[in-house]
């Protein structure tokens, strides 16, 4: 478990104090894939660097598995860092070393004997899917492959925590998905806690179970990914949710109203686990009504699907009321058109 209490980082630039990280408190549980999202300049990069002390916190307490990172002396810090893997946006692999030697580097630092090193490198190359590339130099690899080297290297010493600093931001969408898939597999297989920072809601949606939103050095919103998706409170969070859901809040009703009987328009919110049941076809079979889907978007998150559909229901008034009642008994939330007469 990682507990972060009132952590701040203040930079002094030309006599002016800049609070890059401002009173951040978070708790990250073992096995979490914890996302920190924010626009550039929000302080998320500085924040993640505080966790392995690539930056020293100005104040506050960071405990990883009970160990206070900020209190460690040089040697203790070096040992602690061997237990915290880090993956970087620009990969940061050594061009002068082959893939295998890059992955072996942290093992050399940890003074693992050579034969054990070779065996571990082999395992890692298999784990990240780089078989056949052992003797290639980074310049011969694609971005996605370089990041796989970065991930294998970060995992070499069996860390408890993996920090990902915009690990997919330099990759194309397809490669991003394959790297995210790899991170999720590693999280499942090894039970590794992953903390990642990103500016893409897509990344949060794909693999995170919890998310914190940062703005101007502060965490302005934090919680389960689905809760944050469903009910974003801060303006910045709403903007991130819109990145993948479009603006569903208000405009959507207006664009439809006028063409249909307003009191037969409903918005169905699908949130989490049970959404995967075939709710719509179930309703159509059970009740003598027609369901016309007018607009909507459903997306997959780590905790199940999330999204909303605007539907137009036609049929007997009683049948519609019964169908609505049924829908409400499932995990679907039904919203009535606010403009209904």
């Amino acid at each position: 478990m990682i507990s972060i209490q009132n952590v701040s980082k203040v930079f002094n630039l030309k006599g002016k104090d800049i609070r890059a990280v401002d009173q951040v408190s978070l708790t990250i549980n073992k096995g979490d894939i914890y996302g920190v999202i924010g626009y550039s300049g929000a302080g998320k990069s500085t924040f993640i660097r505080l966790l392995n002390r690539l930056e020293d916190a100005t104040s506050g307490e960071i405990k990883i598995d009970g160990k206070d990172i900020n209190q460690l002396k040089a040697k203790g810090l070096r040992q602690a860092r061997q237990q915290i893997g880090m993956v970087y946006q620009h990969f940061n692999v050594l061009w002068s070393r082959t893939v295998a030697d890059n992955i072996a580097f942290p093992l050399e630092i940890a003074r693992i004997p050579k034969h054990k090193r070779q065996q571990r490198v082999k395992e890692l190359i298999e784990l990240v899917g780089l078989i056949g590339k052992e003797d290639a130099y980074p310049s011969q690899l694609s971005g996605g492959q370089k990041q796989r080297v970065g991930i294998a290297r970060a995992l070499a010493n069996n860390p408890n925590v993996l920090l990902c600093d915009e690990a997919t931001s330099a990759l194309d969408p397809e490669t991003t998905d394959s790297i995210l898939q790899l991170l999720r597999d590693i999280n499942k297989q090894l039970g590794l806690t992953i903390i990642l920072i990103t500016h893409e809601m897509h990344v949060i949606r794909k693999i995170c179970n919890r998310v914190a939103v940062m703005e101007a050095g502060r965490v302005v919103e934090e919680g389960e990914v689905l809760d944050v998706f469903r009910n974003p409170k801060q303006r910045v969070t709403k903007r991130f949710v819109q990145q993948i859901m479009g603006n569903q809040q208000d405009e959507s009703w207006q664009s439809i109203v006028g063409e249909y009987e307003t009191d037969q328009l409903y918005k169905l919110h699908f949130i989490g686990e049970k959404t995967s049941q075939a709710v719509i076809s179930e309703v159509a079979k059970r009740y003598p009504i027609d369901i016309n889907i007018l607009q909507g978007q459903i997306t997959q998150t780590q905790k199940g699907p999330y999204g909303a559909l605007i539907v137009y229901l036609t049929g007997e008034k009683e049948a519609i009321a019964a169908a609505i009642q049924y829908l409400q008994s499932t995990s679907v939330e039904v919203e009535v058109n606010p403009n209904a007469s």
Partner: peptide, 29 residues
């Protein structure tokens, strides 16, 4: 020499001497 690579070595828990002999010198050779 790429600052990121030096940072990565630090993040792995490398000593300054390790950074000099295994990162700085080979990468600038």
């Amino acid at each position: 020499v790429d600052k990121g690579v030096i940072e990565a070595a630090k993040g792995m828990g490398a000593k300054t001497s390790t950074i000099i002999f295994k990162v700085l010198l080979p990468e600038s050779m």
